[in-house]
Amino acid sequence: MKKVVLGALLGLSALPAVANEGYFSGEVLLGKTDQELKSDFGDTDGDDSSFGIRGAYNLNKNVAFELGYMNHGEIDDTYIDEFGDTINDRFSSTAFNLGVKGVIPFENGFSLHGRLGLSFWDVELEETDSAFPGETFKGDDSGTDFYYGIGAQYTINEQFTIGAEYTLSEYGIKSGGDFTGLDADIDVKTLALSAGLNF
């Protein structure tokens, strides 16, 4: 994943040579992420505060290439399974996102946008089961899946922007490694506010 991110940064740095109308921008994102883990052993869900940073090369007023990092927070859920045992699941996820933003600008500084790209995600899971006292199952997995989203932005002046966005992704965990015997999907839904700076 580090090679992919490094390659993306080098690619973004080369863009001014082919499009001198563009400019760079950076954003800080704060929001709430709902995560739902769905597997054959049961479902676990919850939400937590999330945060991230994102850099972009704005090719023109309609298209931007983006690279960002999101920490989706931690979910801690306790439930009774079909055997009457108490299960506690705690999991968290992070992602590097590489994608494209399409922008529809309006008058007075407002714009709508859509996002599409790839999430290079990492998930950590910790589980206890009352049927196995004193034992803790731990797992760590990573992969690549698509993300997409919609949002709105207001340009305060030439330098500063604020916005709101809703982003969706699904991380597919396949049985193997730390997750032997577990196939699962994690639905990740993030509603975030952003503050940006144009360079």
Rank of each mutant, 00 (worst) to 15 (best):
D45V: 01
F91E: 03
T78M: 13
I186N: 02
D81A: 11
D122Q: 08
L67G: 05
D178N: 14
F160G: 01
S25E: 05
E124W: 04
W121E: 01
N88R: 15
T44I: 12
S50P: 05
I186R: 04
T167V: 12
G26T: 10
A14P: 00
V4P: 02
D34H: 13
E165Y: 08
G163Q: 09
K38L: 14
D34V: 13
S49G: 13
L37R: 05
F199R: 10
R54K: 10
E107G: 13
A56D: 13
G181F: 11
E127H: 06
N71T: 01
A152H: 01
D145P: 06
D77Y: 09
L197D: 00
D76R: 10
H113Q: 07
T144V: 14
I186Q: 05
I104T: 03
K2I: 15
F91M: 08
H72V: 00
L118Q: 11
L6I: 15
A164H: 07
S39W: 05
S39D: 12
R90D: 02
L191T: 07
E82C: 09
I87K: 07
V188I: 01
G46L: 09
S49M: 12
Y147N: 07
I156R: 01
E82H: 10
G73I: 06
A152S: 12
L59C: 06
F51N: 07
T44Y: 11
Y166A: 03
V188W: 06
K61V: 11
A95K: 02
Y154V: 00
V63I: 15
S25F: 14
D185P: 07
L30K: 02
T144G: 01
S194W: 14
D129G: 13
K138V: 00
N58K: 09
F106H: 06
S175T: 15
R115P: 13
D178K: 05
A64Q: 10
D34K: 13
D34A: 13
E170R: 08
V4W: 00
G163K: 09
L98I: 11
E36R: 14
A152K: 05
Y23W: 14
P133F: 14
G55Q: 08
V28D: 07
G68A: 09
E135Y: 15
Y166D: 04
L15K: 01
Y23Q: 11
I75V: 15
S25L: 06
K38H: 09
L182I: 14
D129C: 15
N88P: 00
G114C: 04
E21C: 08
N71Y: 04
D76Y: 08
F41G: 02
Y23R: 08
S194R: 07
Y147L: 10
L125N: 08
G114A: 07
G117D: 03
N198E: 12
F96Y: 13
E107Y: 00
G99F: 06
G11M: 03
L193H: 12
G177Q: 02
S39C: 10
I87V: 06
D187N: 12
N198D: 02
F179S: 03
D85K: 15
A17N: 07
S39K: 09
K61S: 15
I87G: 07
D34Y: 09
H113E: 04
I173N: 07
G22Y: 02
S169N: 04
F199A: 10
G22L: 03
L15D: 06
F179Q: 01
N60V: 04
F132S: 06
V100T: 02
